[in-house]
Design a protein around this nucleic acid. Structure first.
Length: 308
DNA sequence: CAGGGAGGCGGGACTGTATA
DNA sequence: TATACAGTCCCGCCTCCCTG
């Protein structure tokens, strides 16, 4: 028997013949004509080199070879049916698995704490991993299955990538409380542009770029700033600012959260900076994957709370 | 004679290949 | 990658044959 050319539909016919013992009744069960079942039985006989059923009066009697196939065939067909049927409804309380999020350490501060609490309470079997956001490579990380979700500033993505807008992330200026450069300034208000341009800056840049959105915004009002260093993680930016007289532009939500623990003061930037839209992207192959879909829903809900 | 299996025939669906 | 086309396969209809 050549399995490569064997029509597996014939196994459904064989199973129906076992169950009904008649080509007429098997045909009814399969919604085929009797002749179609008879033809299928003929092809089965040829393929398996056995008569399979012998006519005895008005009924068909299975051969010894066929009897040996009956129970294993039934079990295999039931296994295949179960494999192809819709999965059970996803239950986070009993689900287990790993969900990897590729994102900057902004999300280590803003997403992972509430996500940890949520998973501990509602989905103890699911593990979340925040993995490095590799600059210029986050789309490939989705394709290579190194990440299930990437959280990034809005950008064009290939058509095999799904996307969801999450929140806008305005920038605020941070400086350490006893930075002499901000003496006399009203905390929480706008930082004067002369102060902003006179003080040196720490720039968040995973790619090592020496300019960013803040520089473009300054250029529009005819000014420049001095970037003294770049750091690839926000925690490093905040630490450098907290232990020096440098200042930095960081997402407002992050500034508000860490200002107290880092001993920082927060100011509004002196110029208009369009807040970038943060989006979630994932591979379309996992659009309907139950665990991934549920985790995306939880992450998106937590992140959308940051908007406004 | 009724019920049921087998097989011929024609039509439609499917599949593989070539081509744009 | 989409489309056209030819070859193949399968199904249903119909009929014949066998059995009780």
């Amino acid at each position: 028997m050549n399995f490569a050319t064997f029509d597996l539909n014939l196994l459904r016919v064989l199973d129906a013949l076992f169950r009904e013992g008649s080509t007429v009744k098997a045909a009814r069960r399969l919604a085929l004509s009797q002749s179609a079942v008879s033809g299928a039985l003929s092809r089965l006989r040829h393929a398996l080199d056995d008569p399979l059923f012998l006519r005895q009066g008005n009924r068909l009697v299975a051969t010894d070879f066929a009897v040996g196939l009956q129970e294993p065939l039934r079990q295999e067909l039931e296994r295949i049916e179960a494999m192809l049927s819709q999965p059970d409804p996803f239950d986070p309380a009993t689900a287990s698995g790993v969900f990897r999020i590729s994102a900057s350490d902004f999300f280590a501060e803003m997403l992972m704490p509430p996500l940890a609490d949520l998973l501990y309470r509602t989905a103890p079997g699911i593990r979340a991993q925040l993995v490095d956001l590799v600059p210029h490579d986050y789309v490939q990380s989705l394709e290579r299955r190194n990440a299930d979700l990437a959280l990034i500033p809005d950008t064009a993505v290939p058509d095999w990538v799904s996307r969801a807008p999450l929140f806008r992330s305005p920038f605020h200026v941070i400086a350490r409380r006893d930075n002499p450069g901000i003496a006399g300034l009203a905390f929480g208000g706008p930082m004067p542009i002369d102060t902003f341009c006179r003080l040196h800056h720490v720039l968040f840049s995973p790619e090592g770029n020496l300019t960013a959105m803040g520089d473009a915004a300054l250029t529009r009002v005819g000014r420049r700033r001095q970037v003294a260093m770049t750091v690839p993680v926000f925690s490093g930016v905040c630490r450098a600012v907290s232990e020096s007289d440098l200042i930095a532009l960081v997402p407002a939500q992050l500034a508000a959260k860490v200002a107290g623990s880092f001993g920082l003061q927060v100011f509004r930037p002196p110029m208009q900076i369009d807040p970038p839209l943060i989006i979630g992207i994932w591979h379309r192959r996992s659009d309907r994957a139950p665990l991934a879909a549920w985790m995306r829903g939880q992450v998106f809900e937590l992140m959308r709370a940051l908007d406004g």
